[in-house]
Design a protein around this nucleic acid. Structure first.
Lengths: 212, 212
DNA sequence: GTCTATACGCTGATAGAC
DNA sequence: GTCTATCAGCGTATAGAC
């Protein structure tokens, strides 16, 4: 294994190629459904050659997951507690929908893993993601307490954003099968914007009352 | 194969047992990830004995899918075009959420299949489900035209209901990992009721104006 | 670093005794 | 109807030549 000093250019490039190919294959078939041969073929390598760069199928998957998790959760970290609440949430929804459009394979990779019980992610979920979600919930709750957005269960609000945006990537074939020529993502953007505006626009304004 | 005249009681019972076991295994691992041996063990049968009742793994899966699809889509058929629009939609949301709670394996079975490109379902999606969705869209659109619910993209409204309700079954491990002791389904019910009330309650009342 | 060859367990499916 | 035995093929992974 080329793990001594610093990896050469070729090593870096090959590892990156493999990871890219693995994303393709794992996101389409899940871990058990994917084969090393498929990944090797997609990467333009022979099977033994691929296993020269990664010790096992499991190792490829683990590496892939850990590389993607940060990227995947980045939009959540960008929510600014100091920003205008509705704008922040709508911007987050937009970013998430954009990711579904630009990175559907990543979305489906996580979807596959979680639907099947997340055996290789449950730790990350319970620690890293859990902490991030707790923070976000605090932000949402503070905005609601201040009356700047309408009150709903903050954690389920977050779940709803994930669910609604990732749906267009994870269930893409279904969406495509049920929509004639239209562009699902453009329509979804408008739909979700309306949805969250109507759900979150405060009906009364305790914040203004409090400020007065 | 016991397919001559009418199946005996034992045959019926065994086939039912196999289908039940197959639901367990397929919903957890997907088609490729599941093994005949796992299904046989779960059904309390030997592998050859299981293959006496079904000719192949593929046949079990196909049978399972076709048995479930009707059940799964039943709530959608229950929407009454003559009913009170908001009530009908809220009742549909409730039924779908209840199904996620009572039949999470069925939900995950479909989720697995669709995320992986629905190779064994794409026909049903494009024909049966497509027709049903077109009907439902017509109903929703009529309600909006009459001003009895607020206007949103009717097809995406339906997608949103599927997405939000099935999320609690399909991503159950994630939801569990991110919620301490609470009952997700009870909270989700209240959350979704609020969401759809706020999104769909008409702000102006063209229907009343029209009636006057 | 990359290849051919291969070990070897697992998987879907069948044969044939009972 | 159910079992044991078995097969061919696929799957992960390794050995060793180049």
């Amino acid at each position: 294994m080329p793990r001594d000093r610093s990896p050469t250019r070729i090593q870096k490039r090959n590892r990156a190629t493999i990871i890219e190919a693995a994303l393709d294959v794992f996101s389409q078939h899940g871990f058990r459904g994917a084969t090393v041969d498929q990944i090797a073929t997609a990467a333009g390598l022979s099977k033994p050659n691929l296993l020269y760069y990664f010790p096992s199928k499991e190792a490829i998957f683990t590496e892939l997951l850990s590389e993607l998790l940060d990227t995947w959760l980045a939009p959540l970290r960008e929510i600014d507690p100091q920003g205008e609440p509705l704008d922040e949430i709508l911007a987050y929804v937009t970013r998430k929908l954009q990711m579904s459009q630009d990175m559907p394979r990543e979305s489906r990779l996580f979807a596959n893993e979680i639907v099947q019980g997340a055996p290789r992610m449950i730790d990350a979920l319970s620690t890293d993601l859990r902490a991030l979600v707790d923070e976000t919930e605090t932000i949402f709750a503070a905005w609601m307490d201040a009356g700047r957005i309408a009150r709903v269960h903050p954690r389920h609000l977050l779940f709803s954003i994930w669910s609604l945006t990732q749906h267009y990537a994870d269930f893409e074939v279904q969406v495509q099968a049920l929509m004639t020529p239209e562009d699902p993502f453009a329509e979804a953007g408008a739909f979700l914007d309306t949805l969250y505006r109507r759900m979150l626009t405060p009906t009364t304004s305790p914040a203004i009352l409090g400020d007065a």
